[in-house]
């Protein structure tokens, strides 16, 4: 229950912060975390499946995380999935194979792991007028709209032309893999 309470509170805070605008603190005086911080906290690195930031609401995740996403009054926005439908929808989706709940805030042992967190403000493009290059692979992220348009889209990566749906016509996926250099031979 504590977990559910916290999750609801976090979501409520996000909505609240949004509504209050220019304030470091939400209406009830609890310090809120920035959106970028919250985003980083929910995934080990950019590209890792985010953890589920709320308690179990339903056995069927796609009831809320559906094609358009769902605004749940008083709770928050349940975004659409970036995954293509081929991965399995509805009852056949194995969401919890990759996305896990948080049963505790504690850790087992301290960790020095620091994952990739890219600066979303710095996209790469060929020249100043060229369309930005995708910094990630599209596997499991076939549905660009889920993250780049709509209420869940972060400001830095929000698309200015959501009416154009053929994204890959202009934005290229970086398909080449930087192969790791040949084996590092031990010297001892």
């Amino acid at each position: 229950m504590r977990c559910q309470h916290r999750a609801r509170l976090t979501l409520a805070l996000l909505v609240c912060t949004a509504a209050c605008g220019n304030s470091e603190r939400s209406a009830n005086g609890v310090a809120s975390k920035s959106a970028a911080h919250v985003r980083a906290e929910r995934r080990a690195y950019d590209g890792a499946p985010p953890v589920i930031p709320h308690d179990v609401f339903s056995a069927n995740c796609t009831a809320c995380h559906n094609e358009k996403g769902l605004l749940v009054p008083g709770v928050g926005f349940a975004p659409n999935m970036p995954h293509a439908k081929t991965v399995g929808v509805g009852k056949q989706a194995r969401c919890t194979q990759c996305h896990v709940y948080r049963k505790t805030e504690e850790t087992f042992r301290d960790s020095l792991f620091a994952g990739l967190h890219q600066d979303l403000r710095k996209g790469r493009r060929h020249h100043v007028f060229a369309p930005p290059v995708m910094p990630h692979a599209t596997l499991m992220r076939e549905n660009c709209q889920a993250c780049h348009t709509g209420p869940a889209a972060r400001e830095e990566i929000r698309c200015r032309h959501p009416e154009r749906t053929r994204c890959t016509q202009c934005h290229m996926e970086r398909t080449t893999t930087t192969e790791f250099p040949p084996a590092v031979r031990r010297t001892d």
Partner: peptide, 15 residues
């Protein structure tokens, strides 16, 4: 704070 607000997944932000 303002920008955090925009990025926070709220419904107020315009495209």
């Amino acid at each position: 704070t303002f920008l955090k607000t925009l990025a926070a997944g709220s419904v107020v932000a315009a495209f």
